[in-house]
Design a protein around this nucleic acid. Structure first.
Lengths: 205, 205
DNA sequence: CAATCAATCTTGACACTGTCAAAATGCTGG
DNA sequence: CCAGCATTTTGACAGTGTCAAGATTGATTG
């Protein structure tokens, strides 16, 4: 059955070959379209034309699958960060860029963002070790940036951890209020974070 | 059956009398104990010793019930606010009190807080008109307070809406990172928000 | 080449969920 | 006492995640 279109590509065989990747991609697509909570393993399996429980060979759990998506999200975010750091800008511009990047990433990948930082994984279910590691690394990196920006007198405060917590909190809060639909009109997210910027900076003169 | 203990109290009869309140109270208790997502209408019904679908005469939906809990949460929060405003303090103390109150309320009623401001209701399901109204009123009130604090030169900025959005964002973000378990050790929440305080104030001298 | 084996996928089954329609129950006014 | 009403229950259905057992395939040996 299933008209395996025998000829060239060996990828679409019974032994799917890369089911794991296919599942992840399809799942991302589905949550982007309809939200996390309306993703079911059965609909996902249907979409990939595979049986209900096929995913269980690649993921312990539904939770495990969601953690994998979240981990991918962190990788994507880290890459965006690295790429942005390499640009030729003043530190002040880099800092602003960081804030804006955060908002753009969050509002453009709302469901992945929710998985990365939301209760869905962190509170309710326990999170994978992989996820724990990569998330911690990301935050660590942010603290280091903050320490640097404080050391050169750009950002207020002398406690990098504390400052990172506050600034991250601000970004997270604004992002979440938009994502969750408490605030509407995402396009303003960038504006808001820009007007929050001066609060974090050492007044210059 | 059920030994209606005929004598005095007419409250515990078959026609339950105040099922709605009973259900709400039990539901709050259950989400406080095990979290929102593990609340099921059937377990709730069991707990109140009533049949699976009894709740449907008082609530359209599971969502409707959750909205009712959220509305109660807003009422509770408003009351706490009003009560705090009446205290004899400097405006600066009132502002600080407001920030601390927010964190204490959020971390002490995490599940209700999630219902009040989280995706569970605002994004995914549509929210009740009652909830919409009371939530909007609460925010409106906050904007007015911000306008006043800005007018007397206490808080930075000249755009009350914008400032309220940012400050609320900060509070919400920090609260949520604790509630959802990204940050641990809630007891530090108060500390963090206190060290964020100076960022919002007009520097005095 | 054929037989075996492990990886991969499917089927069957179970308990649990929200929700609707129809029936049953108890209360209250005539 | 009975009709009508508000209230509660029973039955049923489609979904859900997940486990155990079986079926299928590709690769690895002898």
């Amino acid at each position: 059955m299933k008209a395996s279109t025998s000829t060239s590509k060996p990828s679409a065989k019974y032994h799917h070959g890369n089911l794991r990747q296919t599942l992840l991609a399809a799942a991302k697509q589905m949550i982007a379209a309809d939200g996390i909570e309306s993703l079911s393993l059965r609909k996902l399996a249907d979409k990939v034309s595979v049986s209900r429980t096929a995913a269980y060979h690649y993921f312990d759990d539904k939770n495990d699958l969601l953690c994998a998506i979240a981990s991918d999200g962190f990788r994507q975010w880290q890459q965006l960060l690295k790429q942005s750091e390499q640009q030729n800008q003043t530190e002040r511009q880099k800092f602003e860029q960081y804030l804006v990047n955060y908002m753009v990433f969050a509002t453009h990948h709302p469901e992945e963002y929710e998985l990365m930082f939301g209760r869905c994984i962190w509170k309710q279910a326990q999170c994978t070790e992989e996820l724990q590691t990569i998330a911690h690394g990301t935050f660590q990196h942010q603290v280091e940036m903050m320490a640097y920006w404080q050391s050169i007198g750009l950002v207020l405060g002398d406690n990098p951890l504390r400052t990172a917590q506050i600034i991250w909190g601000t970004l997270h809060g604004i992002a979440k209020l938009f994502i969750d639909g408490v605030y509407v009109d995402d396009t303003r997210a960038e504006e808001i974070v820009k007007s929050a910027l001066p609060m974090f900076l050492v007044p210059k003169d």
